[in-house]
Structure formats: structure tokens, C-alpha cells
Amino acid sequence: MIVAEPKSLDEIKAMTEGFDRILMVGCGTCTTVSLTGGEREVNLMATALRLARKVEGRDIEIGEQTILRQCDFEYIDELKDVDSYQAAVSFACGAGIQGLARKFVGKPVLPGVNTQFIGFNEEYGYFTEQCKACGDCILHLTGGICPVARCAKGLLNGPCGGTNNGKCEISKDKDCAWVLIYNQLERLGNLEQFKKIIAPKDFAKAGNIRSMDLRKAGD
């Protein structure tokens, strides 16, 4: 899933400074699962913002709605009374925020969270990055462990000299991805693979302004 972290109340206060009627929109998929953009967080942030405005001696009216996904227009269309709000705060990932912005024509759509990474839910409240969306997957060569996302240097042929008893030199809390890869290849009986040099990746595939058109396949 796409993992996002909450924005601070201060930041949301500053973004919504000029408005007294806003809509906060939760996203029922990735950011709900990463505990930062679901109905609960929307409710919490809305209550906090209302209180903050009261402390300043003024009122703000906040609508709260959560839809299944903000990266699909059909779900965005389910939002009610959007015209009556001056602005919207989206608690979806960057894609969802932009999806909402395309529907909220002529009105500001503000980010309620900071989108972080494609990740994995290790345990309650703890998420780790697993994928850089490089566009050229080599997990079949590395025992199912991605060195692009999980090696601090993104080395395709590791480890580097900074590996230290299975940990990375940047932090003793972080595993060295290349030790993990070695151990897994050993378990798979495929240490031969470890000896092979992985060719440089075509990072052009991870370039900007990417799109994907599956319709071509049917041509």
C-alpha cells in the first residue's frame, strides 16, 4: 500500500487560514490502512481544527466525508454538497489529492497528509518502504528482497563495506539488504546467483511523467 504520514495541525491550520467552510475528505483505502487518512483521522483533525479556531475566537464549519478511494473519479463523485465548501483537505496519497483537485474545479484542494512510500505493514503502526516503483523489477534475482528500496545506497551488487553484522552502517536498527539477500539465496540453494553481476538498471523507466496504457495490448 501507499503509506502517508499525518501533517501537523499547525500546517493544516496555516493552509486553511483563509477559509471558514471546508470539506475534509478521507480515503478508505491506502491511507486508512496506514492509519493516517481514514474516517478516524479526518474526524480527529476536524475536531482539532474547530477547537483551534474557537481558541482564536472564530468558527469554522468542517464537513467530513470518507470515500472508498480518491484515485477513482467514480468514488469522488459520491461526495456530497461539494459546491458549498470553499476548499477541501484531502487525506489521500498524492494521487488521490490530485484526483480530488480535478473534481474540485476552481477551489483549492489541500494536502492533509505527506505521502511517503510504497510499503509494508510490519506490525501495528509500523510501516517499512519496500518498493521504489523503479519500473524494472529485479526481485527474481535478489531472493524477493529489493535492493533498490531497501539498501541505503540502492546498490545492485552489494553489500558495500559498510555492512556490519547484518546491519547497515546508517543505523544499527536497519538490516543490510544485501545480507538479507545472501541469506535468502542460500535458503533457496541459489548462491550461484549471488556471484552474478547484475547489470545497471534502466532508470529511464523510473523517469517522470509516467503513464501506462493497457488499451494498446488490445490493438
Partner: peptide, 8 residues
């Protein structure tokens, strides 16, 4: 944390 941000 939130109460500090709220100003209470």
C-alpha cells in the same frame, strides 16, 4: 500534542 497545536 494536539492540544498544544490547538492552543489549549
Amino acid at each position: 500534542d494536539m492540544l498544544n497545536g490547538i492552543g489549549l
